[in-house]
C-alpha cells in the first residue's frame, strides 16, 4: 500500500514541477504557453538519451532540464512579439513539432519504438521499493528548493518587472524595460522546470515514447494551475494534488460504486476533471488560492 501511495506522491511532485514552470510563465508573466508538453519531452528525451550513452542520471536529469530551457530561447526570441492567443497557437505547434521530430529522427530517439530500459534513480543501491521512497524524498527536496528559489525570484526586482509585464506591458516598456528579454527569460526558466519534471518522469517510468507527449499532458498542467491558482505556490501544490486526485482517485470509484463499468469509468474520469475546471472558471476564476490580478491574459 505504501508503495502505491508513494507512487502517487511521486506523480504529484513531478507534475508540481511542471505546474511551477507554467505558473511562472502564465501566472507571474502572463505568457500563455500551450506547448508545455514539448519542453517536458525535451527534458525526458534529453536525459534519456544521455543516460543511455553512459552519463550518470544525477547529471543527465539537470542536463535534460537545461536543454528544455535552452530550447525555449529561440522560441522566445521569435514569438514573444506575439501575445495572447497567437503565442498559445505557436507554442502548441512547437510541442507537436517536437513530437514529430521524436517520431522521425529514429537514429536519435528510436522513433515510435520508444526507449525502454532507462535507468531508475537510486535503484542501483536502493533496490526497487527503497528506490521509490528515496526518490520521493529527493523530489520533495527538489520541490522545496524550487519553491524557495521561485519565491526569491518573484520578490526580486526581476520578479517585479515580470509582474509589470503581465499587468501592463506598455507601461513597462515606457519605463525603458526590454520586456521581450524578460519574457524570454521567464519562458526559459519555466520551460527548464517543465523539462526537469519530464526528466524525473522518464527515469521513474523507465520507458518513454512519443505517444506519451501529446497535448493532453499540457492541459493537465493547465488544469492544475487553474484550479489551484497560478500566482500562489500553495495553489500550485493544491491544484496538482486535486488533479492527480481526480485522475487516480477515480480508479477507486468502482471499488465503492460497483455498478460502474470500466468503459463508463473512463468517461466519468474526464467528466469529473472537466466539471472541476468549468466550476473553477465560473465561480473561482482566479483558482482556489489565486488573486484576481489586473491585466492577466
Amino acid at each position: 500500500m505504501e508503495l502505491y501511495v508513494s507512487a502517487i506522491a511521486i506523480w504529484v511532485l513531478i507534475y508540481t514541477l511542471m505546474a511551477t514552470g507554467l505558473a511562472l510563465q502564465y501566472g507571474f508573466t502572463g505568457l500563455i504557453n500551450f506547448g508545455v508538453v514539448g519542453f517536458v519531452a525535451i527534458g525526458a528525451y534529453g536525459s534519456g538519451i544521455l543516460s543511455q550513452h553512459g552519463v550518470p542520471v544525477w547529471l543527465s536529469i539537470p542536463a535534460g532540464a537545461a536543454l528544455a530551457g535552452l530550447a525555449a530561447y529561440p522560441l522566445g526570441r521569435v514569438t514573444l512579439r506575439l501575445g495572447g492567443d497567437y503565442l498559445a497557437i505557436v507554442t502548441l505547434g512547437f510541442s507537436e513539432t517536437v513530437r514529430i521530430f521524436i517520431i522521425k529522427e529514429e537514429w536519435l530517439t528510436r522513433g515510435t519504438h520508444g526507449m525502454p530500459g532507462l535507468p531508475r534513480i537510486f535503484e542501483d543501491w536502493a533496490g526497487r521499493s527503497s528506490g521509490d521512497l528515496t526518490l520521493l524524498v529527493l523530489l520533495v527536496a527538489v520541490n522545496v528548493v524550487i519553491f524557495l528559489l521561485m519565491r526569491g525570484l518573484i520578490r526580486s526586482p526581476f520578479g517585479r518587472i515580470l509582474a509589470a509585464v503581465r499587468d501592463n506591458e506598455v507601461a513597462a516598456k515606457a519605463l525603458g524595460k526590454d520586456t521581450a528579454s524578460f519574457k524570454t527569460r521567464a519562458l526559459m526558466i519555466g520551460s527548464a522546470l517543465c523539462g526537469l519534471g519530464g526528466a524525473f518522469q522518464a527515469h521513474y517510468i523507465t520507458f518513454i515514447g512519443p505517444e506519451q507527449y501529446v497535448p493532453l499532458m499540457t492541459f493537465y498542467v493547465w488544469i492544475a494551475i487553474m484550479i489551484g491558482g497560478a500566482v500562489s505556490i500553495r495553489g500550485i501544490v493544491v491544484g496538482t494534488v486535486i488533479l492527480i486526485g481526480f485522475l487516480e482517485g477515480s480508479r477507486f470509484l468502482r471499488d465503492v460504486f460497483g455498478g460502474i463499468s470500466e468503459v463508463q469509468l473512463a468517461s466519468v474520469r474526464f467528466w469529473l476533471i472537466g466539471m472541476a475546471l468549468i466550476c473553477t472558471v465560473l465561480y473561482r476564476p482566479q483558482g482556489l488560492f489565486g488573486e484576481r490580478t489586473k491585466g492577466t491574459n
Binding site: 521513474y204 505517444e211 470500466e262
Partner: peptide, 22 residues
C-alpha cells in the same frame, strides 16, 4: 480487477501499481 491504461505508458504504470500493490 480491471484498469484502463489509456494506451499510454505513464498512465499504465500507476494502474499497474494499483493492481500489484493495492
Amino acid at each position: 480487477f480491471a484498469e484502463d491504461d489509456q494506451t499510454r505508458a505513464d498512465a499504465a504504470v500507476l494502474a499497474a501499481k494499483k493492481l500489484v500493490e493495492i
